[in-house]
Design a protein around this nucleic acid. Structure first.
Length: 898
RNA sequence: GCAGGAUUAGCUCAGUUGGUAGAGCGACUCGUUUACACCGAGUAUGUCGGCGGUUCGAGUCCGUCAUCCUGUACCA
């Protein structure tokens, strides 16, 4: 074993440990194992995705849980994989096709296009996986899955076919959310409402029977006017009752349309009259149904105007058409005024353009097992953390709507439905290919294609990506129609770690699918991570360029530094504002631990010192103290893990190592390691160091896996070929068997010395003697054991010596301080600026007087004394007398100065 | 509109049965004594968003207002 280099350089260390873990198959789950199971399935990132900080946080948490579970003796399966991400991936490849070849997907055809997507997937699909490995994720890569794997796809088709046979999947012409850029229908969840500053156009329709008289309406969408088929008013609205049943003139294209009465209309809004365009608005569509109105579609699929009768508008984009329509109305004298108006507009999640309500033929799913799923979360059978998300989940389940599962895309799972060829031609022309029009013999719905494919045509649509993801917890573990050891051992999974933004998309749906298809809920706990924002509180996004590249951060600070920094500050249940200095802290922390070990190596024997060999009688207070605190740490970690308080776990690890172990313990025992110390002293201290550090590295391992492996090996805490990650946490405390009262005494003495040392340092600093090492301290009072610890106290206060002299008579004006080890004086030997000292003391007196009067006030409050707990009152009394003592002492010093 | 969350030191955040306000970063002052300047020692900084209530006592419980998030429902 060689000496350690001066600074910790994570890059190579992390790389080589990851390789070592892989080589030793540390991440592989064994379904045959006798150990109890622990499992997580990864929320599959988009196959073409690039790692961002959200992924880092999410996967760091999963890795921490997985590694901790291994240490606790579980057989762990962390099952990784990627999602084909229909729209996102298809859009990327289409863009590439356009940029490189100037072609659209239709130019090259479905088959050729899909080939291109698969090529892209092969080329870029591994990037995010490599990045997760860089982060140190201990996934079972042998079991990596992809939502479009052959076996996985069988599950998707089979589930579709089952649900169809159950009558839960149907096809129909409905008003759906249409994305005019992606040219596909979307589910309600993929529509993001955004507040928009729109305009409200007030316009008028002339009444047919009384020319010159008009009915005024208000609309935000004058460009749909060509599709108007009625004007609706509220039946209770006295102003308009007389017009119901009359006709009004639609200006372009010219037509006469009726005035109808409908409860939906709000008399308070606008003019109280609403123009009805059933083809382009969900509410209008329903009103249209109630009044049996015609449906006139005036847009193409890409939301350009499709209306040959109005050539001024025909072919225009919807927003251009909006402006133009308003102008045309104005010219005709039909536009009254335009008001600013804030409204909500639904945007397409992927393309970020307003969605267009559109009537089209789509496949829908009535959710299976929705009641059972809702109950499981409401009653806590699945626990949500933070718990409040359960409520969000519940309210979505309450208003659950059928799921539009068909997408007019090419990249995805093809809908497993075939139509008999001859039927298709006739029905397609009429756009009336409804199931009602097909007899059972004309339709083939199955996971397997028909035996005579030449006579059939498959439905051209693919399924929503989430229609495959919702099967993820079990479809990754088991092939269809095949018993698997994996699913027996590891399903249901233990924890799911994901973002609250996909509760509806994914979590809620997985619960229903798990219940329906495996008869068991898919997981026990769901942990929702923070959403990461920048320092201005904005969401991380590519377009804002405010999203730091985690790979850069890892290059700079190490994967362990990134993980630790992020985890230590990530709040539970609130957003996280990302600050790079947090990551820097993580790196500094790694370096601190590394250097503590380096110190140990320089101080003594190369091999691990055996702590048990040293009898506990040799243990000094500092030894007992750090051993006890290490045992406390273990208990506190246990508690914090039980509640998934990851920031607290990190903070505990940080405080223990930095404040307790380095700042106190190591400083206190440095004397034991000097050359003049006895061999026994040295051996004991090294033994305690190794015992504590070896354990500490195990506790830290889930947060900083690479560093802990590196140091454990270098320090001889594990032997070559052994891994910290595979070592179970010991159940016995370090101090098991040691007399409890000995421990208590030791800890009391240690903390008394630490506290006294701090006071002495303060005293030096107050007199601007912080850097002086020739300062001598004299303790006038103190416990019997002070003599033994005086040299340590001197060491900790970087003074020349601390002596214990009962008979010491301080000269007038000698500063002193009351410490837990007695009253200690600091003879000045006359090198202090008198005036500065006076000012300082005056200030001090003022401060103390304030505290004294505050405390007195409290104690003279009868109700306080009567009602407060005895120990609280006692503590207050002690505080008061302490302040009073100090006050008289300082006053004395002040007097002596003059 | 409704629901949930947040508001604590200049910044990022802790503060779990109500009982002397904490950490890290940053600022300032000292310091390179062989673990670490990715360090050590020290100092300063808080009407705990505002107002009201319960209580002997409130950052903590209740009410209310304000600001900011996040969902969700909608009126065109």
């Amino acid at each position: 074993m060689s000496e350690l280099p001066k600074g910790y350089e994570p890059t190579d260390v992390e790389k080589s440990w990851y390789q070592a873990w892989l080589k030793a198959k540390c991440f592989e789950a064994d379904p045959e194992s006798e150990k109890p199971p622990y499992s997580i399935v990864i929320p599959p990132p988009n196959v073409t995705g690039i790692l961002h900080l959200g992924h880092v946080l999410n996967n760091a948490i999963q890795d921490i849980l997985a590694r901790r579970a291994r240490q606790k003796g579980f057989e762990v399966l962390w099952l990784p994989g990627t999602d084909h991400a229909g729209i996102a991936t298809q859009t990327k490849v289409e863009r590439q096709l356009r940029d490189e070849e100037g072609k659209t997907r239709r130019d090259i055809g479905r088959e050729a296009f899909l080939e291109k997507v698969w090529d892209w997937k092969e080329k870029h699909g591994g990037i995010i996986i490599q990045q997760l490995k860089r982060l140190g994720c201990s996934c079972d890569w042998e079991r990596e899955r992809f939502t479009m794997d052959e076996e996985y796809s069988k599950w998707v088709s089979s589930v579709f076919s089952d649900l169809f046979k159950e009558g839960l999947i149907y096809r129909g012409k409905r008003m759906v959310n249409w994305c005019p850029v992606s040219l596909t229908a979307l589910s309600d969840e993929e529509v993001i409402p955004k507040k928009q500053n729109s305009k409200l156009y007030y316009m008028k329709y002339e009444l047919v029977e009384t020319p010159g008289k008009f009915l005024e309406v208000a609309t935000t969408r004058p460009e749909t006017l060509m599709g108007d088929v009625a004007v609706a008013v509220n039946p209770k609205d006295a102003r308009y009752g007389k017009y119901v049943g009359q006709m009004v003139k639609r200006p372009f294209p010219h037509a006469e349309i009726p005035v109808v009465a409908d409860d939906h209309v709000d008399p308070e809004f606008g003019t109280g009259a609403l123009k009805i365009t059933p083809a382009h608005d969900k509410a209008d569509f329903e009103i249209g149904l109630r009044h049996d109105l015609e449906i006139i579609n005036v847009f193409h699929a890409d939301a350009t105007v499709n209306c040959a009768e109005v050539p001024e508008l025909d072919g225009l984009d919807r927003f251009a058409a909006r402006k133009k329509s308003a102008e045309m109305l104005d010219e005709m004298g039909l536009l009254i005024r335009v008001e600013e108006h804030e409204n909500n507009v639904g945007f397409s999640e992927r393309a970020d353009v307003p969605i267009e309500p559109r009537i089209s033929m789509q496949w829908f799913l009535k959710y299976p097992a929705s009641e059972e799923a809702a109950r499981a979360v409401a009653e806590g059978e699945i626990s949500y953390r933070p718990a409040r998300w359960a409520k969000t989940h519940g309210s979505w389940m309450d208003g659950i709507q059928d799921w539009c599962v068909s997408r007019q895309l090419w990249w995805g799972h093809r809908i497993p439905v075939w139509y008999r060829k001859e039927k298709v031609e006739e029905l397609k022309a009429a756009e009336s290919l409804t199931l009602a029009n097909l007899s059972a013999g004309d339709l083939h719905v199955s996971a397997d294609p028909p035996a005579d494919p030449e006579n059939w045509v498959q439905d051209p649509d693919v399924l929503d990506t989430w229609f495959s993801s919702w099967l993820w917890p079990f479809a990754t573990m088991q092939n269809l129609d095949e018993e698997s050891d994996l699913v027996k051992k590891f399903y249901p999974t233990t924890d799911l770690v994901t973002g609250p933004d996909i509760i509806f998309f994914w979590v809620a749906r997985m619960i229903m699918a798990g219940y329906r298809f495996k008869g068991k809920l898919p997981f026990k706990n769901v942990f929702f991570t923070s959403i990461i924002r920048d320092l201005q509180g904005r969401k991380m996004s590519k377009s804002l360029g405010n999203s730091p590249d985690p790979i850069d951060l890892m290059d700079q600070y190490g994967a362990d530094g990134l993980r630790f920094g992020l985890m230590r500050t990530a709040p539970i249940g609130a957003d996280l504002r990302f600050d790079e200095s947090q990551v820097e802290e993580g790196r500094n922390f790694a370096n601190k631990i590394y250097n503590a070990c380096r110190f140990r190596r320089m101080a003594g024997s190369d091999s691990r010192a055996d702590f048990k060999a040293a009898s506990s009688e040799n243990l000094r207070p500092y030894h007992l103290d750090i051993l006890a605190k290490c045992d406390d740490l273990a208990a506190n970690q246990e508690k914090a893990y039980a509640e998934y308080r990851f920031n607290e776990i990190g903070q505990q690890l940080y405080d223990f190592l930095w404040s307790e172990f380095c700042d106190k313990f190591l400083e206190a025992v440095k004397g034991d390691l000097r050359t003049e110390a006895s061999e026994a002293q040295r051996a004991t201290t090294l033994g305690v160091f190794d015992a504590v550090m070896a354990r500490y590295l195990q506790y830290l391992h889930p947060y900083m896996p690479h560093l802990t492996e590196e140091l454990s090996l270098r320090m001889g805490y594990v032997s070559e070929g052994e891994f910290v990650m595979e070592k179970e946490l010991p159940e016995e405390g370090l101090l098991t068997g040691v007399n409890t009262s000995d421990i208590e005494t030791g800890q009391e003495q240690a903390s008394a010395v630490y506290e006294a040392a701090a006071k002495l340092r303060n005293l030096k600093a107050e007199y601007r003697l912080a850097a002086r090492k020739d300062v001598r301290f004299i303790a006038k009072t103190g416990p019997a054991w002070l003599q033994e610890e005086a040299s340590t106290l001197a060491l900790l206060s970087s003074s020349q010596e601390v002596t214990h002299e009962e008979n010491y008579l301080p000269e007038q004006g000698t500063p002193g301080v009351v410490t837990p080890v007695g009253e200690i004086f600091m003879p000045l030997d006359g090198l202090i600026d008198l005036e500065a000292e006076k000012t300082r003391l005056n200030k001090e007196i003022e401060k103390i007087e304030k505290e004294v009067s505050k405390s007195k006030g409290k104690l003279s409050n009868e109700k306080f004394v009567a009602n407060a707990k005895a120990e609280v009152v006692e503590a207050e009394r002690a505080r008061l007398s302490e302040w009073e003592g100090k006050l008289s002492q300082v006053q004395e010093m002040r007097k002596n100065l003059t």
